[in-house]
Amino acid sequence: MDEQTPVFAIAMAAELAGMHPQTLRQYDRLGLVSPSRTAGKSRRYSMRDIAKLREIGQLSQEGLNLEGIRRILQLDDEVVALRRRVRELETALADELLARPGRRVFAAGESGDVISLRAGERAQRSNQLVVWRPMLLRGERS
């Protein structure tokens, strides 16, 4: 069981979140928190849902209206998705670098001159910009 597992009925979720069950129903109708449903259509909340309900309560106490809260939650979800994507891309880049040792890296000097470096070598000056560009395989076009 993890934080995404839907285990709490609405009464227990409301108690854990410090809210009335009717408030949870309203948030579900508005799409702020969308719990899972059982075969009998009853709501089941996860720990992630409870945390989101608590966050909604906190933002509401700070004076935000429900539309503002909805937008904040939407942006939070986008940030989580983007961080996940960055990790995926970092992993793919690291795998590519490991698969192709000996590739060359280039740095730009103050006057715009290009300095060739071996992979793993650092530029001499701290004000140089290091740019990585993968070499094209035969038959590929840029």
Rank of each mutant, 00 (worst) to 15 (best):
Met1Glu: 03
Asp2Asn: 14
Pro6Tyr: 12
Pro6Gln: 07
Ala9Cys: 10
Ile10Asp: 09
Met12Leu: 11
Ala14Lys: 05
Ala14Glu: 00
Leu16Ala: 12
Ala17His: 00
Gly18Val: 05
Met19Gly: 08
His20Trp: 13
His20Phe: 06
His20Tyr: 15
Pro21Gln: 12
Gln22Tyr: 13
Leu24Asn: 01
Arg25Trp: 13
Arg25Asn: 05
Arg25Lys: 10
Tyr27Leu: 01
Leu30Thr: 07
Leu30Tyr: 10
Gly31Thr: 14
Val33Trp: 02
Arg37Met: 04
Arg37Thr: 09
Ala39Ser: 08
Ala39Met: 11
Arg43Tyr: 15
Arg43Cys: 06
Arg43Ser: 07
Tyr45Arg: 02
Ser46Met: 12
Met47Leu: 02
Asp49Pro: 03
Ala51Val: 01
Lys52Ile: 01
Lys52Tyr: 01
Leu53Ser: 06
Leu53Asn: 05
Ile56Met: 04
Ile56Trp: 01
Gly57Leu: 02
Gln58Tyr: 13
Leu59Gly: 06
Leu59Glu: 04
Gln61Arg: 13
Leu66Thr: 07
Gln74Phe: 05
Leu75Gln: 12
Asp76Pro: 00
Asp77Tyr: 08
Ala81Ser: 12
Arg84Ala: 11
Arg85Ile: 01
Glu90Leu: 10
Thr91Glu: 08
Leu93Asp: 05
Glu96Trp: 11
Pro101Asp: 14
Pro101Phe: 04
Pro101Gly: 03
Pro101Arg: 00
Gly102Ala: 02
Gly102Asp: 09
Arg103Gly: 09
Arg104Ala: 14
Arg104Met: 15
Val105Lys: 04
Phe106Gly: 05
Ala108Gly: 09
Gly109Leu: 09
Ser111Ile: 13
Ser116Gln: 15
Leu117Arg: 00
Glu121Phe: 06
Glu121Lys: 05
Gln124Ile: 14
Ser126Asn: 15
Asn127Gln: 14
Asn127Ile: 11
Gln128His: 08
Leu129Ser: 15
Leu129Gln: 10
Val130Thr: 14
Arg133Tyr: 14
Pro134Lys: 09
Pro134Ser: 05
Met135Asp: 15
Leu136Asn: 06
Leu137His: 14
Arg138Lys: 07
Arg138Leu: 13
Arg138Asp: 15
Glu140Leu: 05
Arg141Phe: 14
Ser142Met: 07
Ser142Asn: 12
